[in-house]
Design a protein around this nucleic acid. Structure first.
Length: 377
RNA sequence: GGCACCGUCGCCAAGUGGUAAGGCAGAGGUCUGCAAAACCUUUAUCGGCGGUUCGAGUCCGCCCGGUGCCUCCA
């Protein structure tokens, strides 16, 4: 199942139609599970036995802790709105109870039911939605269909900034666009999957920089092994039978433990690099390395990583840094040429001067068999 | 005030009963003109106190510290 998921995740994305999404909650009134009050329709929480089960709350605690003024229209402070009478200047739709709009939990129940049916497997969301949003969603859906709408709830921890949750209403948020000005999307993605989805994750430049170093190391392994094995054909069947995949699958089956998969990827990238140097000494085993490489990339792709070629990623990261740091590429290349000229003449003093000057600009050199490459520290 | 969750190496982060994964940073080494990259080696007894157990980071209680939810934001 894990092995196939790669091709199915994307296909599930649907852009819902714009418009009004409703579940037929009018029948709830007939059955005493909801009531109309001055143009509003409320769900009667006491009519649903399972209320509080998802969030682990009991109804007595909730009532004792109610800190907000009770809405006099409600029979019970816990009751929530299914249909809300609109104020004169608000968008509204006609209904048996007058002009209004759906309650704030309705659209989730309605869309889930429309696209996935009365019961579907997994519903995600942030931890803060557990109560009351998802609790109410369950209550109203169940009231209408008679069955639980969701088999597994997957609630993720917050992205924090300075220990406080990142949220639109607090204003302490970054957009992806902001982040991509400094970091490659795969660096961000690696950062996100480096911790368990239920844990809070601290957003910081240091953490993203660390993730960027690691993703580059993964690509380094891809590059090293790729240049040795060339275009070896590896079948999907062979990948599926590889022990490395089984290891990662085990971690994923344990409540999506992506952090452990990342640890496995780290170990495997080291293993691949080691094997590359062995093969470089003429010990053969290219087929084995090709399989190892393909499986490594396959697992990476399951996490949305390692989707490009090493050259492509390096170029993309390079472009980001170049723009961010406003580098003078011509000057850099000029200095590199000077240095290589000096090296030819074994003028090590001059060569080191050039590198020192580049280092001042944040540029690090790498002499490879293909020539001198450079990157930004 | 009520109810939850969290506190693991300098930093990030797995592990939820059998004697601490992984990464970054640091140190030493191989390689290199010197470097870089890569590779090798190396660094923790888990907020505090008490309890349960043959055995606890992992269970229970209390304390300290942090966060979240308790609202017609979705």
């Amino acid at each position: 199942m894990f092995a196939e998921s790669r091709s199915t995740i994307i296909a599930m994305l649907v852009m819902p139609d714009q418009g009004l999404f409703l579940i037929p909650f009018s029948s709830l009134i007939e059955r005493g599970k909801a009531y109309e009050s001055e143009g509003d329709v409320f769900y009667s929480v006491s009519s649903f036995d399972g209320y509080g089960q998802l969030s682990g709350k009991n109804i007595e605690d909730l009532q004792a802790g109610a800190r907000v003024d009770v809405n006099e229209k409600k029979r019970d402070a816990l009751d929530f709105v299914l249909w809300k009478k609109s104020k004169p200047d608000e968008p509204n739709w006609n209904s048996p109870w007058g002009a209004g709009r759906p309650g704030w939990h309705i659209e989730c129940s309605a869309m889930g039911r429309k696209y996935f049916g009365d019961t579907f497997d997994i519903h995600g969301g942030g931890k803060d939605l557990v109560f009351p949003h998802h609790e109410n969603e369950i209550a109203q859906s169940c009231g209408v269909t008679g069955c639980l709408p969701v088999r597994f709830w997957v609630h993720n921890g917050f992205v924090n900034i300075d220990k406080e949750k990142m949220s639109k209403s607090l204003g302490n948020f970054f957009t992806l666009r902001d982040i991509y000005k400094k970091f490659h999307p795969e660096a961000l993605r690696l950062f996100l999957v480096s911790s368990h989805y239920r844990s809070p994750i601290d957003f910081s430049m240091k953490n993203l920089e660390d993730a960027e170093k690691v993703i580059l190391r993964f690509y380094e392994a891809l590059d090293n092994a790729g240049s040795i094995v060339g275009d070896h054909n590896v079948s999907l069947e062979e990948i599926k039978n590889h022990p490395f995949l089984a290891k990662c699958e085990k971690a994923m089956n344990d409540d999506f433990n992506t952090a452990v998969v990342v640890a496995h990827l780290n170990e495997e990238s080291r293993g691949i690099n080691s094997e590359c140097s062995l093969i470089g000494n003429g010990e053969g085993g290219k087929k084995n390395l090709a399989l190892r490489l393909s499986t490594f990339k396959f697992v990476g792709e399951l996490l949305g990583l390692l989707t490009g070629s090493p050259e492509k990623i390096r170029q993309e990261i390079f472009n980001i840094k170049k723009t961010e740091l406003e580098l003078d590429v011509e000057k850099i290349e000029c200095l590199i040429n000077d240095r290589n000229e000096a090296r030819k003449n074994k003028d090590w003093g001059r060569a080191d001067e050039c590198r020192e000057e580049l280092a001042q600009m944040g540029v690090v050199l790498e002499d490879t068999s293909k020539g001198t490459e450079w990157k930004i520290k």
